[in-house]
Amino acid sequence: MAHDPAVTRARIAAGVFSVGLLVATLSPLARDPKARKSDGYPLSTFPMFAEKRATKLTITYALGDAPSGARTLTPALVGTGEVLQARAMFETALAGGPRRIAELCAQIATRVAADGDYADVTAIRIVTGTHDAVDYLIDGKHGPEKLRGQCEVKR
C-alpha cells in the first residue's frame, strides 16, 4: 500500500498542506509580540496576559447620573455586547475629539432612555478615570476621574 504511487502522491499533498498550515500558524513567532499592531487574526502572537503591567489603569468609560449616585453602564448601552469592544469604542471616540465624544454620549443616552432598568438615570458622563485595580476591587477606593463629555438623557 505504502509503495503505491497514488498513495505516495496523496501523502505528499496532505503533508505539504499540513506543514504549510502549521508553519503559518507558528509564523507569528517571527513577529515581536511587544510591537503594537503585531497581533493578527487568525494568526496571532497571543500576547494576552503576557506583558508586565502595573495595577494602575487609566481608562475611559461612561457613567449614568442618578439620584442615588453614578451608575456604571453595560457594554450593550455603549453599542456592543463585548466589554473590550466598548473600551475600544471609548478610545476611538476620545482620539476623535470632543465631537466624537458628544456623538457617542448621545448614542448612549438614547439607549439608556429606552432601557427601563435605567429609568433613574438623567444624564450621561464620559470620563477618564485612573484607578489602582487592587485598591478599587478589594478596598473600593476610586481614583480621580476627568470629565470628557456629558449629555442629557431625554425621555
Partner: peptide, 9 residues
Amino acid sequence: NLRKAVLGD
C-alpha cells in the same frame, strides 16, 4: 476585572 467593573460587565 477593573475594566469589567467600570465598563459595566
